[in-house]
Design a protein around this nucleic acid. Structure first.
Lengths: 339, 339
DNA sequence: AACCTTTGCGCAAACCTTTGCACTATTTTG
DNA sequence: CAAAATAGTGCAAAGGTTTGCGCAAAGGTT
């Protein structure tokens, strides 16, 4: 192999055998026009020389890069990396590659990521919105140009764009009822900021869960926080300092559940004897703490798979009505919520 | 904008203005040959039509895709995703994209990933070997063809390929000495399988650490396990059941440290009063458990950055002697190891 | 024997960009 | 005023692939 020349082309093969480029191309694609002997000879040489078609050339020709852009708020949390794994698995089966970009939870970087990915000619985008994102013009451009787009978890433009989310309301309801069944009656809830759809949905589930158990809603048991650990600790503190404190608390995500756990322990209260605790979080973290944390786990890998499937549906049939997929969560009961 | 036509080309602009493609190309590159008015007009139209050069065409022309292939054992652990973030950051600054593949810790998928990435014409590879990988032919092909290659964390072919690793021996030594300084004298160590270089290096550090503190090495205090949680629990059990059990234990990674923590607690022993504990793990997990776990943290993000930097060095100067970068770890002291 | 069909292959265009060279006007120089 | 320089633009090739069409030779049909 010549130095500096890293890949053989059809031309190289053609020259070596003494036929035209088209013949080589056809032979490799088993075109019936080419005689069996020639085909055999060409295919052997191609194998020997380790020929693989140049995807750049194919991309130019077919106007299809077989690449999908994926934008996530960050790369380092298990939730997103697991979803990416799911996307990757389905993409790989279809012979697609994914190009990953991180918005770092900022709108600015999200917009930049969209533009950069489009520049690279990805065939479309699979996106989870950043926490900041409240205007969606940068996606409207894709919608107008019929560039395939799928949202997951944090979504917008529903009805126009395929989405995959988990049933947050149902999940929160499950938690509430789980508490009820285990004898807890004063169920507290630490929510997130109002503008996040997941926070709203979970709040709805909390309320409807209370109702379905015949429990009355006590406003003082619903606390809000931004999603920081410190704020969550304060919120927990307020709940525990109530004249009639909750006997069970449900935190809206990882950070908050663990912060609540710390605060409860630091007040000398026992989990679950004095206060039960349930969170929304992933398997590994939940089993590492003491007591192991009962929690709602997301089907992250499946979520990624589903997002990718919706994407390919879109590629194959751009006109179809966009699907809205809702996945179910699972309540995994551990020690923190069972007396 | 026409439907179905997603990107404008030089040709489109040329036709619209009534000049040749070359003129448009030159105008956009501010070539002095083109008259100022024409240049201005073309640049305005290009901006209006949202023109961006087609990277496929550029790739074909320049024989450079501006893509780097990255292969990691898995995507879902913080260690790797954080490294990827580091790689991405440096790559982005250089206008490169990264294509991520996961080997799932198997040799077979690693080989497949190498081949697939080469097929896509990445300009080179940044790789962390899978746990299984003990033969390296699939990389020799790259070395021979002068395709840029960088290894991080788990490395091979040192001397031929740039590598970036952490100083595992030093890290293990730090831990041992930290124990000593805090009054612990019977220091246990739960190692991993022998064939892993990181396990060997850390064992060396453990031994030299003991020596430098004037402590004698007791073989019964060195336990081995495969890296599973159950095995680690058993190993911890054996240590704690010794006639003279250790007063401090050092676990070689996340899984093992947390498993040890569980086992210690389940025997009714207190951390750090009865047994101190230190692990190799990441920030988040360590602070979530109770007591917070003292641990060695890897400079993961920096490791990714460094790997990317070595990669570009290689691109710019393929002949240079490959660098071997060794990064320092940090011992973050928390409650689990200080009486 | 004259024509038609089939077989097997090559030419050239298209996808998009850059760039050396050629070309045409204009302007400058001797 | 003729010759030469200069400014401004277009042509065409290259990079790799697919594919409609054309073409030649061979075989088959009356």
């Amino acid at each position: 192999m010549e130095k500096g020349k890293r890949h053989v082309s059809l031309k190289d093969l053609a020259n070596e055998i003494g036929v035209s480029i088209s013949t080589v191309s056809r032979a490799l694609n088993n075109h019936p026009d080419i005689s069996p002997e020639v085909t055999r000879k060409i295919q052997q040489l191609a194998a020997a020389r380790n020929y693989t078609p140049n995807p750049l050339a194919m991309g130019l020709l077919k106007q299809a890069t077989r690449m999908i852009g994926v934008i996530v708020p960050d790369l380092v949390t298990h939730f997103y990396s697991s979803i990416i794994s799911g996307i990757e698995q389905v993409a790989e089966e279809k012979g697609y590659y994914i190009l990953i970009a991180s918005s770092n939870e900022t709108l600015q970087k999200e917009i930049k990521a969209v533009n950069n990915l489009l520049k690279t000619r990805v065939e479309g985008l699979i996106v989870c919105l950043s926490q900041e994102t409240r205007s969606y013009e940068h996606f409207d451009r894709l919608i107008q140009n019929q560039i395939p787009l799928v949202f997951f978890d944090r979504v917008c433009r529903m009805g126009e764009v395929p989405t995959v989310v988990v049933d947050n309301e149902d999940a929160a309801q499950k938690i509430t009822r789980h508490f009820y069944r285990n004898g807890f009656r004063r169920i507290g809830y630490i929510a997130g900021p109002d503008h996040l759809s997941i926070s709203q949905e979970r709040t709805r589930g909390y309320l409807s869960g209370l109702k379905s158990c015949g429990l009355e809603f006590r406003p003082e048991l619903l606390e809000k926080c931004n999603l920081s650990s410190n704020d969550a600790i304060e919120a927990t503190g307020r709940l525990l300092s109530l004249p009639e404190p909750p006997d069970a608390i449900f935190g809206i995500n990882d950070t908050i559940a663990f912060a609540a756990m710390k605060e409860i322990k630091s007040r000398g209260l026992r989990i679950p004897e004095d206060v039960a605790l349930v969170g929304f979080t992933d398997e590994f973290h939940s089993t590492v703490v003491d007591p192991a944390l009962t929690s709602i786990t997301h089907p992250t890998f499946e979520m990624g798979q589903e997002a990718a499937r919706l994407f390919f549906k879109r590629i194959e049939n751009p006109e179809a009505k966009p699907d809205q997929v809702v996945l179910n969560t699972k309540l995994v009961v551990r020690k923190s919520s069972v007396k």
